[in-house]
Amino acid sequence: MITSHSPRVVVITGASGGIGRASARVFAARGDRVALLARGTTGLEAAASEVHALGGTALPISVDTADHDALEVAADRVENELGPIDVWVNDAFTSVFARFIDIEPDEFRRVTEVSYLGFVNGTRTALRRMLPRDQGVIVQVGSALAHRGIPLQSAYCGAKHAMWGFHESLLTELRHDRSSVRVTSVAMPGVNTPQFTWVLSRLPKQAQPVPPFYAPEVAARGVLYAAEHPERRAYWVGIATAGTIIANRVAGGLLDRYLARTGVSSQQTAQDKPADKPNNLWHPVDGPDGQDFGPTGPFPDRALNHSPQQWASQHRRALAATGALALGTTLVAGRTSRSPARRAS
């Protein structure tokens, strides 16, 4: 568990937009030295400016996390310029919104390389530096879709399911070795990020996150908390995440039928997909002359800014203790109220 508020060296992949961008802001606000990794350039430079403005130190590095050798070079640069890596956040991903049969083999492979193998590469790169020092934290930005597949996202769901299996396997190895390096995961709900602006889509309508969905700042707070409390194997963000995972455990077949009826329409708005919609599957959409998309997607007015479930998940021990105390007080009060009657009899 991290208790010190001294500046740390934090690496965030996928830092140019979405959850990664929002996470860079929360780490910067506590004065950390933040290495920002992503393929683009415009978003990275804008993220670096935000980190500096918030009191942190920024190091933007353009790199594709699917390229393990390039990631090793990037990590060497981080440690040479910022210092030993304390926290590594794996967040970079890409996807395709389409029925499985409409996704080409090379597209499916590319999603897997970035959204799954990118996490594997980042984790290996971090461990090669953390294990010899026997300290460090790795945060895997996961999803409810690591536990429950939905229509139109077969490549992404497959990658997230693979990430969860990899995460569990690694956890057992680290515990067997009695390592002080910690790895944890944060399962996210639908989040209003720019992915709905730039992910390759073959849907007729504009793609959207499954409601209810959240602002990226909610997700970023979950990432920060996990980095500071990595003793738990996983955290859930949002009531939708908790409901989806639990429902799939107890009634997966019923959920199959429910998603078959609602899953396609719930991921699309009523508006037609823009004819000139960009996609970032093969190339970043924020090149030197590109747009800075920031952390927030196209649905800010519909995104929730708070998650009571997230707070409850992070404070479940205190809630359990409070509940036990309340129950004990109730039982004692009940016994006290009945005692005069027993004496009278």
Rank of each mutant, 00 (worst) to 15 (best):
R232F: 01
R317S: 13
A126C: 11
H176P: 01
A159E: 09
P84V: 11
Q267G: 08
E72D: 12
H306S: 09
E107Y: 13
G83D: 08
H52S: 15
W236P: 01
W88C: 05
R335K: 04
D91Y: 02
L59M: 13
G55W: 14
H176M: 11
C157Y: 00
M1T: 01
E231H: 14
L255C: 02
A321V: 12
I61P: 03
S337P: 01
G243M: 11
T65N: 08
D286W: 04
A326Q: 04
V10N: 08
G243S: 13
P211H: 01
I239P: 00
P105R: 08
Q268D: 06
R257E: 02
A251C: 06
R316N: 14
Q195V: 06
A75Y: 11
A333M: 08
R342I: 15
R175C: 04
A326D: 09
V87R: 07
F166D: 03
G83W: 04
V114H: 03
Q310N: 06
F93V: 03
A48L: 12
H229K: 10
V186T: 01
T262Q: 14
R30E: 05
L82P: 15
A215Q: 09
L117T: 02
I61C: 10
A126H: 11
N280Q: 07
L54N: 14
S115H: 03
A126N: 14
R25W: 13
G222R: 02
A24W: 05
S339I: 04
V332C: 05
W236E: 01
P298D: 15
D292W: 11
W282P: 03
R33T: 03
Q208P: 07
Q153G: 09
A227R: 04
P204G: 13
A46K: 12
Q153Y: 04
F119G: 08
P274V: 09
H68L: 07
T172A: 12
R128E: 04
S115W: 10
A344M: 13
G238P: 14
P60W: 10
R33K: 12
R249Q: 12
L327Q: 09
E113H: 15
P204W: 00
G136P: 06
V9Y: 13
T112L: 15
D272Q: 12
A38H: 01
G118V: 06
P209E: 06
D32H: 01
I85E: 04
